[in-house]
Amino acid sequence: MGELLVIRHGQASFGADNYDKLSDLGHRQSEAVGQLLRDTGWVPDRTITGTLTRQKETLASMGFEAGDTHPGLNEYDFQNLLDARYKGAVPELVKGDRKVHFRTLRETVFQWQADEIEGPAETWANFTDRVEAARLIACAEGAERVLAVSSGGVIGQLTAASLGAPHKMMMTLNLQIKNTSITKFVFTKSAFFLHEFNATPHLMSAETADMLTYS
């Protein structure tokens, strides 16, 4: 069976003018997970990321060469969902308070899944379709060890779909996923199974425990 390791990108630049880049800590997290894979002898036959900068920077800091890109591995556009939900008048507290931000994220995604948000740039059905398209390309013939770098929503959806779980489970999983965590799937031409979820062995020592983040 083939192995697909999906890494969530390192810590991004929350609160900065450009969120879509790694923080200094994000680069260190990425270096740590890349070193772990090499130390355990796991070297990919294929690499693939979304088109987002934070995903590409994660792969580079992991120390692996860039391969394919596929927009199906990109995160859903939460800012667009917020704008659509609040008709462009997003409350300031949602923008600036992390606790309120993530509570609103959960509520908004549930509304999106239920088609209760009018006029989003991407529908829930389109999101799930593109994630599945990226999965098929990542798991195409020609590689036994595939390394993908993606984002929390995509990883949550890949995991929920592999388990046949209800749509809402995607968001429950999404909010648990740690930066540079490893989610492992095994696959054949006709099967795709979850093997390991949200693992961070590279952040479990006394020296690295303070590097653990979720955004």
Rank of each mutant, 00 (worst) to 15 (best):
E57D: 06
E122Y: 12
Q111M: 13
S205Y: 10
A125Q: 13
D45C: 11
T53H: 14
H202N: 06
G50F: 03
R130C: 01
Q79S: 10
K99E: 15
M62S: 03
G119A: 11
F78Y: 15
A32P: 11
F185L: 02
G63R: 07
P44E: 02
A148H: 04
H101A: 11
Q157D: 14
K168A: 11
F78L: 14
D20C: 03
G152P: 11
G152Q: 05
W124Q: 08
P71C: 00
Q29V: 00
F193P: 00
P166A: 01
I137T: 13
T69F: 09
K168H: 14
G153K: 04
G152V: 00
R46W: 11
A143L: 06
R28P: 01
T49Y: 02
R85H: 14
T208F: 05
V186I: 12
C139N: 12
A121K: 14
Q55E: 03
D83T: 12
R130G: 04
H9K: 04
G88Y: 03
R85T: 13
A138L: 03
D24S: 14
R85L: 11
D68W: 08
M204L: 12
N198P: 07
T200Y: 02
H101Y: 15
T40M: 08
G96V: 12
E207D: 13
Q113G: 13
D17N: 15
T159Y: 05
A134F: 01
M169G: 00
V131E: 02
V149Q: 05
M170A: 14
L81H: 05
L22P: 12
G10H: 05
A84C: 04
D24F: 07
R145A: 09
E57W: 07
E207H: 07
A60T: 15
Q111Y: 05
G164C: 01
L36I: 03
L175A: 08
E57Y: 08
N198K: 05
H101P: 00
P91D: 05
N179A: 03
Q35R: 14
R28I: 09
F192D: 03
F185W: 00
G50D: 07
V33M: 01
I177C: 04
T159E: 05
S30L: 00
G164P: 00
